[in-house]
Nucleic acid binder design. Structure first.
Lengths: 183, 183
DNA sequence: TGCGCTCAATCAATCACTTGATGGAATATA
DNA sequence: TATATTCCATCAAGTGATTGATTGAGCGCA
């Protein structure tokens, strides 16, 4: 249910109340329980929705040599358009550390993401955009960590231009960008 | 109170119950309320404890040229020794997005961290370890994002050797390390 | 005695979830 | 076609359990 998804983005897991979800969905509490017998089932629904939404980021459309850079820009654009998605993802990431039910699902999504990035890095290497001596899997892990840190942890929100600069710096490290500005 | 701190690490904010905290601390509920009149006050105590604990990371002791690398290793060591700290930090980071009471405290800590890193990058540049064309503040932001993504988001926990490689790759990007292994 | 601290007992509020009933569309029966 | 039956979706009104917080009586020690 999209309503629960929105509620989590607003109030987090600690503030997730079935009453509020039902209210936001415009239905009775009993109706909500008709579709989602338990709160746990509702959360599972949210997980599925969030993961599906997040996987759309992986879809690459640009030319092979620019796919990697396009991926970074795609995540950044998604973070601007749907900040709730990253809030929910962060919430789920934290919860996956103690909830064995969603841990495998979350891990699977991240693994798929890393796999995609690994391929993109490999392609970029083949075409001379990225240093061939780098290990694609390691670079993918580092990129994921940086993006997670930038967008899932709302601390960095203290200035989107800082996020832009950090992203540009990451691209520069990867060799996708020549300009390394200063001060 | 350290007990509450531990409870949050175990069950997150959503699972934080004053009763459990009192039980883990080995005191009566009323005793807990004697020291922390409200749950909010208890959380403030946890925030203070976590921040103070986290700030110890900033303390640099190595030789100027190696301070930056030492900082990265220090964070990694702390993450291995006290994983709860990073769980709590992640929980606080997420909460700071919607709780105006802890948002400024958290932001202040991160700003102090970035300031420290900025200085370290600057020093490293002065001594020729890091490319002088890089913007210290931007590099600091990227490093913080990467570390946050690696340690606060427990997703990456799928293999500490992957974390090690990603960190080594980051050091390599910064110019602190020559070896860039492959596959 | 007075003060810092602790305790069992209790409260009102809130939570996830249940109950029994209702209307309406689809299907079966005549 | 007309009537009876079944099933799905929804609702108002609860239920018991749990929550954060309070109370007033003690305890040990200065």
């Amino acid at each position: 249910m999209v309503a629960a998804y929105r509620r989590i983005a607003e109030a987090g897991f600690e503030g997730l109340r079935t009453r509020d979800v039902a209210a936001e969905a415009g239905v009775n509490i009993a109706t909500l329980h008709y579709y989602f017998p338990t709160k746990e089932a509702l959360i599972r629904g949210v997980v599925g929705h969030a993961m599906a939404r997040f996987r759309t980021t992986f879809a690459t459309g640009a030319r092979p040599g620019e796919q990697l850079a396009a991926q970074l820009r795609g995540v950044r654009r998604l973070a601007m358009q749907e900040p709730e998605l990253f809030v929910v993802m962060g919430e789920l990431a934290l919860r996956s550390g103690r909830d064995p039910a969603i841990a495998p699902i979350f891990k699977e999504t991240i693994d798929a993401w890393r796999s995609t990035l690994r391929t993109l890095v490999h392609h970029a290497q083949s075409e001379g955009f990225v240093d061939r001596r780098l290990d694609p899997d390691t670079v993918a892990s580092l990129v994921i960590a940086a993006l997670n840190g930038l967008f899932m942890v709302p601390v960095a929100k203290a200035g989107s231009e800082r996020i832009d600069r950090a992203l540009a710096q990451l691209e520069s490290f990867l060799g996708l960008k020549r300009s390394t500005r200063r001060s």
